[in-house]
Design a protein around this nucleic acid. Sequence first.
DNA 1: GTGAAAGCGCTAACAA
DNA 2: TTGTTAGCGCTTTCAC
Lengths: 341, 341
Amino acid sequence: MTPRKPTTVKDVAAAANVSRATAARALNGYGYVGDAAAERVLEAAARLGYRGNRVAQALRQGQLPIIGFVPGDIQNPFFARVAHDIDVAARGSQHSLLIASSEEDLTQERALLDNLRALNVRGVIVAPASVDDNAHLAQLVHEGTPVVLIDRVLADMPCDSVAVDNEGGAREAVELLITHGHRRIALIQDDSRIVTARDRLAGYMNALQAHDLPINQRLIAVSNSTVQHAIDATIRLFSQPDRPTALFTVDSLMTTGALLALRSMGLNVPRDVSLIGFDDFDLATFTDPQITVIAQPVGKIGPLAVRMLLDRIHGFDEAPRHVRFPTRLILRGSVSQNIAR
Amino acid sequence: MTPRKPTTVKDVAAAANVSRATAARALNGYGYVGDAAAERVLEAAARLGYRGNRVAQALRQGQLPIIGFVPGDIQNPFFARVAHDIDVAARGSQHSLLIASSEEDLTQERALLDNLRALNVRGVIVAPASVDDNAHLAQLVHEGTPVVLIDRVLADMPCDSVAVDNEGGAREAVELLITHGHRRIALIQDDSRIVTARDRLAGYMNALQAHDLPINQRLIAVSNSTVQHAIDATIRLFSQPDRPTALFTVDSLMTTGALLALRSMGLNVPRDVSLIGFDDFDLATFTDPQITVIAQPVGKIGPLAVRMLLDRIHGFDEAPRHVRFPTRLILRGSVSQNIAR
DNA sequence: GTGAAAGCGCTAACAA
DNA sequence: TTGTTAGCGCTTTCAC
C-alpha cells in the first residue's frame, strides 16, 4: 500500500548517466549504443526495476498491444473454448486479450467496439450479435481496424471471417432424421438475428424440402441460447397434440435444455423422441444413450482467427478471406428409426 | 480499409472555432463553457465522429479504465462463470475487463501481471496459481495496485479476498461418506500448490481423523483439473486390489472425469462406488443417479470481488477484508450406504 | 556514439 | 468565459 511511483526511462537514464534517448536505445536494442553505456543502462534498469509504460509507448506508437474479442456470451462453452484458444495464440505473439462479451445485445456490442476503438487496440475478433444494423462494424473496418468475424459471417462485410458450414451441418442432421423415417421434425433455433441461426434454419428447411416434406411453423421454436429458455421451448413443442417424433437443436446449451425438458415430460430418448444437436459437448457422452451431434472443429477457429488478424495487423492487404470449416456428424445413440410413420 | 486518422480534440476545436481547452471542457463537461461554444463543440464532435483517445487520457491521468482478471483457466466453467460476472460488474462501472488466463503456470502468471502493471490497469482480480513464490503479488500490492484474490486466499497477502469455505465443504463431503459407512474413501485432488487444493485436502483429512479413520496415501491421487487427467487418476485409484468404496473429487472437471472413468471400468455409481464432488455443475443432474455435490455460491464471487476492487480503486484504505462464503451440500443420488464394511 | 528536442492526444493549472 | 501552455512517458528524427 505504498503508492511509489514507478521507474521511468528518465530515472534509468539519470542513474546510468546518459540521456533519455540513449537509455531508450539501449532498452529497446536499436540504433548505435556504446557497449559501456548500454551495460550501465541495463544494469540501472534492472536495479531500479524499470518496466516501461505501455500506455506511453502506445500513445507514441499509436497502438496498444491488445487484441479485442467480442463473443456473444463468454459463458457459452463454445465461446469460452474459443476465447481460451485466442488467448493462447495472442499471447504467443505478445498481445494481450481483452474480452468483452456482447451478451447478444446489439447496443452493447456497439458500445464495446467503440470502447475498443478508443483504446486503439490492434484489432478485434467479433461474433456479431446481429445480421442487421452493422454500420458500426462496417465503419470499424472502413477505418482500417483489422477485424475478423468468427462463427457468424456477414455476407458483405469486407473483412476476414472464420466459421463453419452451418447450413450443411444442419441439413445433414435433419437428413439423418428423415432417413430414419421421421416426418414431424421439430427445431429449436436461436434468435433469427444471429446469422448462425439463420443458416442452420436454412439447412433444416432445405433438408425438408429436398425430401418433399412440408415446413410446419408449429414445429419450429425460437429460444435464446440458454438452458432455461430451451427447456421452455421444448415443453411448448412437445405439448402439442400431434407431437414431433424428432428434434434438432441448434446449439449445445439448447440440446442440454431439451434433454432436461424431455426427461421431465417423461419422454424417452430415443424411444419417444430422436434427438440430434448442433455442436458437440461434454454432456453428450454422459447421457444414456449418448447424444448424436453435428460437431464443429472448435479448436481450429480461434487460432485461425488470430493468425488472420495478425496478418492484417502486419499489413497484409489482399481481399478478405473467408474460411468455412466443414462439420462432422458424430453418430451416437439418440436417433432411432421412427416406427409409426 | 481506408486508414483515415481518427478525429482528435484538435480537429473538433478547429471545426468549432474554439481552443482545445474549451473543446475539452465541453466534451467532458467540466469548468465554465459558454452555451453557444459548448453547442458548437458538441455538434462538431458528433459530425466528425469524435471518440476520444483512451490511451492519451490514460497517459495523462495515469490509468487505463481497465480491470485485469487472471483466472487459473478460463475454460474451467467455474472461472468462465466468474469471468462473466466480473465482466458485467466491471462494465457497470465503466471499466473494461482484460482476461489473461495463467493456465495454472506460475511463470506465466508473473508475466501476465507484469504486463497488466505495465498497462497501468486500475486493479486486478487474481486466482493465484501457487501458494508459494508470491513475491510478484506481494510486490504488486506493495506498490499500491488494488488487488483482490479470489477462490484462492494467500494467508499473509495484505489484500482483499473472496473465497469459499473449502476446508469445511470438503469435511462435510467426507463426513457424509463416513456416516454412510464408508471407510476406504478415495480423494482426487488438484496440484497441492493451489491453495484451494490444500484446503480441501485438509478437510478430507480432518474428517477422517475426527472419526479415527487412518489416512492412506494410496487412496489419494493428485490430478490436474482436466477431465482427462481425472480419468487417469480414477483408473489408478480403482485398479488397486483393495478398491475404495467411495470417492471425493475436488472440482467439477474432476468429477466429470471420475464419472467417465468409473463407467468405463464397469463400476456403478452408487452401487459399487459412492461419489461426491466439490462444485456443482450442469452435468451433475444429467446422470442417473444425479451427483451429490458440495455447491459454492459461484454467482456471488465475481460481483463481490469487483465491489471490493472498486472500493480500493476509489481510495478505500482500511485493513484487508477477507470474505469466505459457506458451501452447501446438495444431496442427490450418488452416495449410498456401504454394505460390506 | 550520443544528446536535444519534438510530439503522440489529452487535460488542467494558470492567465487573460 | 476562454485561451495558452505545460507535461504525462515514450520514441525517434536530426544535429553534433
